[in-house]
């Protein structure tokens, strides 16, 4: 009895490890959920207008040095003069780092003051600053200093041309939408493949459909658990990878099955 159990464990060792990982993944998901890619969660976009076109590799280096967070580098002008950096959330320090490095490289003179200008003008009704009284402006400047810890002059507040840095909130693409679009074609493909394997193996293994399906489900759930445990950001790319691994596994099952069929055929011929 003991030896039988040992054999079962030995033969299915890898699946046992996978099941343990799945349980661990389930715990992680219930406690912390999944980590999502920037595109698949609500994030921020920092847009900086440059006077000259930039080189994407150089810009990637600059952003890489200035921030520790994940980011997506984008261009938001046809002539590559506006760079857009998507990240989960930018801290003032990160923005300062990015702007300083861009100033160094491209000779601009941007600071966090440029970024906050539009927000401040809207908040303190400073759009008509030229026609405001000095007292009102001074009051606004001191309030700005108090709240934002930033020193503005009247000229700086009036210079709306300097609003060349912008930070906006971007709504994430729902990963559920991707999963919904994947569901039907993937299930149809998997069922057809398993039916093919079953039909080919009908003579020697009638339960191969169920066996392969269980193995496939364990592998897929294991991959999902790995994604959850090691906090790989969930994206359509990850979903496609998981589907691809599943299909590769089915391909392996099929090749193995065809080998058995060939062997059996040769055996029959020899007999």
């Amino acid at each position: 009895m003991k030896t039988k159990l040992k054999n079962v464990i030995k033969n299915n060792f890898i699946y046992i490890i996978m099941i343990i990982a799945i349980i661990a993944g389930g715990v992680v998901v219930s406690l912390k959920g999944f980590e999502y890619s920037i595109e698949n969660m609500d994030h921020q976009r920092l847009e900086i207008i440059l006077d000259t076109p930039y080189n994407e590799e150089e810009m990637d280096d600059i952003i890489n040095q200035a921030t520790n967070d994940r980011y997506i580098l984008r261009t938001s002008s046809l002539f590559k003069t506006i760079v857009a950096i998507d990240s989960k959330e930018f801290t003032d320090e990160e923005i300062n780092n990015i702007l300083n490095k861009i100033n160094e490289k491209y000779g601009t003179d941007y600071s966090i003051k440029n970024l906050k200008l539009s927000e401040i003008i809207e908040k303190y009704n400073l759009s008509d600053i030229e026609n405001m009284e000095d007292k009102e402006i001074e009051d606004a400047i001191s309030k700005i200093k108090e709240e934002y810890n930033l020193d503005y002059t009247k000229e700086e507040l009036a210079d709306t041309e300097s609003m060349k840095v912008d930070l906006t909130k971007i709504k994430g693409i729902s990963i559920l939408d991707t999963l919904k679009k994947f569901f039907v074609p993937t299930v149809v493909a998997v069922v057809l493949i398993l039916l093919f394997i079953e039909l080919r193996a009908l003579k020697f293994d009638k339960l191969i459909f169920i066996k392969d399906l269980v193995k496939l489900l364990i592998t897929e759930l294991f991959l999902v658990a790995v994604v959850a445990i090691i906090r790989i950001p969930l994206s359509s790319l990850v979903v496609t990878t998981i589907v691809t691994v599943g299909i590769a596994e089915l391909l392996a099952f099929n090749i193995q099955n065809e080998k058995i069929i060939k062997r059996n055929k040769e055996k029959e011929e020899n007999e």
């Binding site: 994407e56 590799e57 810009m59 990637d60 980011y71 997506i72 580098l73 984008r74 261009t75 046809l78």
Partner: peptide, 10 residues
């Protein structure tokens, strides 16, 4: 908005 993904291009 016009957008081009530099990260994916790399």
């Amino acid at each position: 908005t016009y957008l081009e993904n530099d990260t994916n291009k790399l």
